[in-house]
Design a protein around this nucleic acid. Structure first.
Lengths: 221, 221
DNA sequence: CTGGTGAATATTGGATCCAATCTGCTACGG
DNA sequence: CCGTAGCAGATTGGATCCAATATTCACCAG
């Protein structure tokens, strides 16, 4: 009985949800495009039922919008929406960092350092999806340390909403280089339990991101 | 063709969702109790499919928790959870008020005054459900004026999460009396475009609420 | 008496089928 | 030529049925 920590999908709806999230991040499901349930379900090898349940979750998160008898459409973010998301992130992430700093152990700091290194490792592969995932793990490791589950959940929704658009940020070599330094500065501030500096580092991090993404968004119209 | 603004339920899942929300607020679906799909569906006069879709929405909002093959359970809030929700509300509602004040018109102020009066009207009926609803309309009218849809949505989720517990607050005569004064103070500050005072009024409002609800929660254990 | 093993039951998960609604095209009248 | 009514196809919404999993309880070994 090899009790290997083997990943398995217990239900189809969860597998579908995970796959839909992936398709949203990669842009396979592009913003504004309608979701054809039958075709998508067939492609995923399931019936429409688990697909619809997964879509309901995404609807609750605002990733897709639903209209009765007209189905689901992949949510489209305007520049205003994007700016709003980043403003909310600022408010909530500031809280998260301040709380986390209060109860940060040395082990936590070490774990954060390790997570930051993982981002560098992913960076060297050049795979945008890997980088995005590693970056996310790093930041949410920190958020989780605040010990506020609802805060983490809300932040996850906000991050999810802009995942597609953030990819363009990671696609740029210059941005990826800057991330390394910014993460380093953040971990450094945390190691010193300097909440103010940590918040400042996060703010800078976000500011770069939002600037790049809005620029990209306005470019295409 | 009488184009009467007649209420109609476009889909069963929406009707079910609305009914489930009502049952959650009234405690008909009590925190911690499992959701028996077949029985509940039959009681609502629908099959399990639309019920399950409605439950997925509530799951996304954290109103129920889901475990694969074990079903849904009505979410239970610990005191810590409750304190967290109120802290998040403080952060987000402060932002909402500050933004709203920036672009408040005289008509908006008048509408807020009217909404506050509605709360008084509901108050005189003594019906806790009516009071809760009127109170909610008043506050969200203000939040909406910030022009930040995601912020409003997040706040709605936070309010929903604690609706059941807030009922105990409104059940107390003394608390209801205080609400009138607090709303008056808030509208007054808004009419003067005094963001600081408005935020302070809201903070006081919340502080009373959280104190009452935590007390009630700790009392029963 | 305790612990575990197995079958029986209850409950959830998913697929298929049918009904309801929407969309696009066509034809007709102005 | 333009607008509209209506029909046909496409798509979603919901109900029923079956499969998969979990839970309960009886039974037995120790």
């Amino acid at each position: 009985m090899s009790a290997v920590p083997f990943e398995k999908p217990p239900t189809a709806q969860e597998a579908v949800l995970a796959e839909l999230r992936r398709m949203l991040v990669t842009g396979e499901l592009a913003p504004g495009s309608p979701v054809r349930q039958e075709a998508l379900a067939e492609r995923l090898g399931v019936s429409r039922v688990p697909l619809r349940e997964a879509l309901k979750v995404l609807e609750g998160e605002g990733q897709v919008v639903y209209a009765a008898h007209r189905g689901y459409v992949v949510a489209e973010l305007s520049v205003d929406d994007l700016v709003e998301v980043y403003r909310l992130r600022e408010l909530l992430e500031t809280e998260a960092v301040r709380r986390a700093v209060e109860q940060l152990t040395d082990d936590d700091v070490a774990a954060l350092q390790a997570a930051a290194s993982e981002v560098d490792v992913a960076d060297r592969t050049g795979d945008v999806a890997l980088i995005t995932a590693a970056n996310r793990r790093f930041h949410f490791l920190l958020f989780d340390l605040a010990g506020m589950p609802r805060l983490t959940r809300t932040l996850r929704q906000l991050w999810d909403a802009t995942d597609v658009y953030r990819s363009v940020y990671f696609a740029e070599r210059a941005n990826r280089d800057r991330i390394h330094d910014e993460h380093l500065a953040l971990v450094d501030a945390l190691a010193r339990r300097d909440a103010g500096a940590a918040v400042a580092a996060q703010d800078a991090h976000r500011a770069h991101s939002v600037a790049a993404v809005t620029a990209a968004l306005e470019a295409r119209g």
